[in-house]
Design a protein around this nucleic acid. Structure first.
Lengths: 208, 208
DNA sequence: AGGCACGCTAAGCGACCGCTCACCCTCGGC
DNA sequence: GCCGAGGGTGAGCGGTCGCTTAGCGTGCCT
């Protein structure tokens, strides 16, 4: 669904779908600034400066500062939904699909924690329409994860007394990685993903 | 440790330790405004207006807008640390103490989610000194929870391959309640606390 | 009664915000 | 060689921000 390009190593090149080049540079600068200082504390002058342009250049490619946040949030949520959809549509057992989903979802929130922080924590800065659109995408993410858990309950693999509540908790756990993950810290995104996949297996009562 | 007063029902009256009355009204107004719009998007005029005062009145009781956030964050973290310390110092088994800690910690983050949102998510708006002080308190919270988990591992009650990682995950799970909890939602703070206590028991491999 | 400390307000200062406008440079098509 | 389109800049507008200052009202102490 995404037009982003894969490198030979298979790693996603983020923002590859944003053109032209100047618009992409501005967007990347905005992601960094928003993640560091928050949306409201970031000035358009700061964004343009990081992209090596004058303040006015921003408005050639984006109508407002909020449109920048909207584009970032939309692309990020599309990517997040893509990740869980891919895992949910896999062919393994519910336990395997849930582990896959958690592992890749967490890996993205850790590896791209700069982007994820903006995507997950600056939602309230969006206007009503944009916010509603993003909330719709979040509901789809929730539905995918809940579906996997329900499948596991149906097959008897999982023991989950409260499926909606456990779904919220699992997603909350994964999303909050973006808040605390630190590149200087002791764990790689892969390691956090593996740890969290194990923790979630336990949460759903899977005896593997 | 806190000078806050208990009501006859046993429920804590938040901000009771803030005096005089005008200073407390301003602080409560600031908590609401910061929680709704974020620190940087909140104006001192808005805070003063909510407290029924003129903009200048704020500066009689607080030196700057940042001092307001600092006071809120400090009091909130003191309360959070108090909660986990009380549970950790209890007399039950590690499983009981961990459940107590999670239940009361989550109950606070859900019931006082307005305050908790400010306390947990506006840390970066603080200056370096204030931030360092708060981070110190967070480390103490982390140490309390890690201590309980280690105790459980030592007695063989818990099966936890990665104690520091699991500690981070447990705290992250509890804290993020403040972000998603909604008073209009289907769950009471008590119910979320009970659900989360169960989920955490599973995460540490407790077979109860 | 007089004085004065204190809580508060009206007005406003200087800075900086998001955003606009008039203009410039570069480059491809003819 | 000229033109038009599109990406870029410098300067700056209107507005709002955090915060300050001069002065006012009220109640307590003597």
């Amino acid at each position: 669904m995404s037009t982003a390009q894969e490198t030979p190593g298979g790693e996603m090149q983020p923002w590859a779908e944003v053109t032209p080049d100047a618009a992409r540079r501005l967007l990347i600068a905005a992601v960094e600034a928003f993640a560091e200082r928050g949306y409201h504390a970031t000035t358009t002058r700061d964004i343009a400066g990081r992209a090596g342009m004058s303040p006015a250049a921003l408005y050639i490619h984006y109508k407002t500062k909020e449109e920048l946040l909207h584009r970032i949030s939309r692309i990020g949520h599309d990517k997040a939904l893509d990740i869980v959809r891919t895992a949910a549509a896999g062919e393994g057992t519910p336990a395997e699909r849930l582990s896959d989903a958690v592992r890749s979802f967490v890996r993205w929130h850790a590896g791209q924690h700069t982007t994820a922080r903006v995507v997950q924590y600056e939602l309230e800065a969006l206007g009503p329409d944009a916010r509603a659109e993003i909330i719709g995408l979040r509901r789809q993410v929730d539905a995918e994860v809940r579906g996997i858990i329900q499948d596991g309950v149906a097959t008897g693999e999982f023991d989950v007394p409260d499926v909606p509540g456990t779904t919220v908790a699992v997603l909350s756990l994964c999303i909050d990685v973006a808040r605390w993950f630190n590149v200087e810290g002791p764990r790689t995104p892969d390691e956090v993903g593996a740890l969290y996949a194990d923790l979630v297996r336990r949460m759903v009562g899977f005896k593997g």
